[in-house]
């Protein structure tokens, strides 16, 4: 019988490899967005040493 307890146990089960890969892809997307954003700043403001540590 499906009870709140069994539902929790099912929910806490380890993620599947597919779900793990999806989480990795999302993390990579986050890093890629940061990379693109910083590249944009580096190209448009090459002398930004204050916030971007080029010092």
């Amino acid at each position: 019988m499906d009870t709140p307890k069994t539902r929790w146990i099912r929910w806490l089960a380890l993620p599947t490899p597919e779900e793990g890969r999806m989480a990795l892809k999302l993390a990579a997307c986050l890093l890629l967005a940061m990379l693109l954003y910083l590249t944009d700043i580096a190209v448009r403001f090459p002398q930004d040493m204050f916030l971007y540590g080029r010092f």
């Binding site: 929910w11 993620p15 793990g20």
Partner: peptide, 17 residues
Amino acid sequence: APAVRWPRILGLLILAL
């Protein structure tokens, strides 16, 4: 195919962070 459980993926991401 089993449905992708997005809350689980989000939780995994938060845990990794």
